[in-house]
Design a protein around this nucleic acid. Structure first.
Lengths: 206, 206
DNA sequence: TAGATTGTTAATCGATTAACAATC
DNA sequence: TAGATTGTTAATCGATTAACAATC
């Protein structure tokens, strides 16, 4: 099982992880492939197939133990540790991200919020104080940060990306609509809800 | 060309749409499949293949006209009109979404922000005033809304979904971590940046 | 002409699905 | 035993990629 997962399998396992995390919070002790399918829109046979490639985690006639399956998938995805991330942008979106419980639930800790606007520096967001962008290099080194989240307007996004790259970040989540130019060893995930929406509308209208 | 696109093709065309929109804003008149590939991480051959299924849009040795290709893809995805959407939640995330230029750029108009918290009702967010959730049915009917965005804490998310469904929404974008139970004719897109991040980390660490 | 890039073919690989025996 | 659900097979379909002629 030391082989690298394909992109598709890893993406699907991540979705199962999300459903299982919530199902556990709702007190569900067992879950069937059919139930996971309803929440993810992934075919139930596909789910059983994905899982059975790593072991026999389920019980026929019963389903999967929520807790046990969660642990197995975490092991497969190697996502059991704590990860520190840096957030660039102390505006509305930055505040929303920094305060969201979504990250903590999965072992992800927003270690710092930075901004290049002197008016924002020093403001408090939840437990954090906004730091000047100049401190990013030091913070990233100290806190072992390789993931950065960009929550600034499109016209500042490339500057934010450059600062992150300069500080050693290898994974960037871009919540602006800007296209970012980055070196080959840096991965960018751009989130664009408007485009996702057009995609969803296509299937509704077609 | 009246046939329905496969899920994969529609998803990729949406990504091209995003890149082309930004490339046009940056004043780029022409773009090659290789350039689109660098921004989307989709194989350049795949891109040419996807496009050539609908016509010969490019010029050999030159590339594609940004403007022209944008129009072609919009036609294929049938996303040329204006769409009104309703946003539930007037907190930090809701404000960020309502104020974001990302939607307007693609013809999507946040027509109303609603909240069940009396303290939030009446507050202004950009051009909008937060309305009580009770007004959703009427607003949805008047503004022809079938898309709803949920930007409330997880423990209110199902209530928000129920209100949207009751008002006739068929597509729901869920920015909480909650799992939503909805009728079969309603599509839910749940965004969970933490899970996306674990997925990205897997490939970085592996 | 030389260089660049599209459009297309052909081959391979992974995803998807139906069906069903195994078994709880 | 009866019902439910997993694990697995087999068949199909779409995605991916390399290669390259066409052509701007």
């Amino acid at each position: 099982m030391t082989e690298r997962l394909t992109v598709g399998v890893a993406a699907r396992l991540s979705r199962y992880l999300q459903v299982l995390t919530q199902a556990r919070k709702m007190g569900k002790e067992r879950i069937s492939s059919q139930e996971i399918s309803e929440y993810t829109n992934i075919n139930a046979t596909q789910i059983r197939r994905d899982l059975s490639a790593f072991g026999r985690f389920g019980k026929r006639g019963v389903g999967y133990r929520t807790d046990g399956l969660l642990d197995e998938i975490r092991q497969i995805l190697r996502t059991q540790g704590q990860h520190n991330i840096a957030l660039i942008g102390g505006g509305r979106l930055g505040s929303a991200i920094a305060s969201s419980p979504i990250f903590a639930e999965h072992g992800i800790h927003v270690a710092a919020v930075l901004d290049n606007d002197p008016d924002k520096v020093g403001q408090r967001i939840g437990d954090l104080t906004v730091s000047p962008i100049e401190e990013l290099v030091e913070i990233a080194r100290e806190r072992n940060i390789i993931v950065g989240v960009i929550a600034v307007p499109a016209d500042s996004a490339q500057d934010a990306a450059d600062a992150l790259i300069n500080a050693g970040a290898k994974i960037i989540f871009n919540y602006s609509e800007a296209l970012l130019d980055v070196p080959a060893d840096v991965t960018v995930h751009t989130s664009n809800p408007a485009v996702d929406l057009l995609y969803a509308l296509y299937f509704h209208l077609a």
